[in-house]
Design a protein around this nucleic acid. Structure first.
Lengths: 120, 120
DNA sequence: CATCGTTATGCATGGACAAACATAACGACG
DNA sequence: CGTCGTTATGTTTGTCCATGCATAACGATG
C-alpha cells in the first residue's frame, strides 16, 4: 500500500525544520482517522515515530498543527487545527504545482530510460 | 559545505529507479572534477557510494550517463556522456521549475512558522 | 617494466535511525 | 472506582545503509 508518488518533495522551511512526504502523510492520516496511533497504524509506522513527527511540527509552527486530548471513553484522540489543515493543504498544493511545472522535463527524462526500467 | 537546497525533489522514473539530489550532485561533481573519486571526495561521500550511484544510473538509462577509463598516466577518469549532460541539465531544470512554481505556496507556509524557527 | 591514480568490487565494521517494548497518566463512562 | 484506548515518554533492540578497508586490474608514460 501507499506506493510512493512520482514526485517527492522536501521543503526546507528553516535551519532545522523541513516539510516532507512523511509529515504530510501523518497530517493526512490524523485528519482521516482522528488519532495519532490509528494514523500510524494506517501508514505502517510506529506510534513513536508518528508522535515524534507531530511533535516536530507542533514545535516548528507558531501554532500547533495537531490538537490532542487524553482520556475519556474513547481514550482520547487527535485532530488537525486550522493551522494543520492549512499546512496540509499547502503541501498538497505545492506537490501539484511542482508536478505540473515539471511535466515536460520529466517526460523528456523518461524518454532516456532503458528498456529494463519501464516494465512492471 | 554544500548546504542542502530549499527544495529537494526526488523523481521516480520507473518501478525501481528514481533520480534525486544525490545522483545529480554526483553527475555535477564528475563534470567538474573529471573523476568519480574526486567527485566523491568533493562531496564528502565515499568512493564506494559515488560509484554505486553511477552504476545505478548507467543501468537505468538506455545509454550510460558516465563514461570511464582506466589506467594511463593519470590513472584514468570519468566524464559525462551526452546522455549524462542531458540528464543533469533536465534535473536542474526540473528543480528550477518546481522552485518557481511553488514560490507562493512556500511563502504562505513560511508565514506560519514560529519565531524559534527562522533564526540562525 | 615499474610506477601511479584511477576504476571496479568484495567484505567487515559502525553508526544512525526506526521499531519494539515498557510504563505512566489521563479521564469519560458504566 | 475499574476499565479502556489513547497520549506521552524513556529505554532497548534491530536493521539498514554507508563507510572503511582491502585488493585487483588497468594502461600510458617515463
Amino acid at each position: 500500500m501507499r506506493d510512493e508518488p512520482v514526485l517527492r518533495l522536501r521543503v526546507k522551511l528553516s535551519a532545522d525544520f523541513a516539510m516532507g512526504p512523511g509529515k504530510a502523510d501523518i497530517l493526512d492520516g490524523i485528519a482521516r482517522t482522528g488519532s495519532i496511533s490509528a494514523a500510524g497504524r494506517a501508514l505502517g509506522m510506529s506510534y513513536r515515530r508518528a508522535w515524534s513527527l507531530v511533535e516536530a511540527m507542533n514545535a516548528a509552527f507558531a501554532a500547533p498543527v495537531v490538537e490532542t486530548s487524553r482520556g475519556g471513553a474513547e481514550g482520547g484522540g487527535a485532530r488537525l487545527s486550522d493551522t494543520g489543515e492549512a499546512v496540509l493543504a499547502l503541501y498538497r498544493r505545492m506537490q501539484e504545482e511542482a508536478l505540473a511545472a515539471t511535466e515536460g522535463s520529466r517526460a523528456d527524462m523518461a524518454t532516456m530510460l532503458g528498456d529494463l526500467s519501464d516494465d512492471a
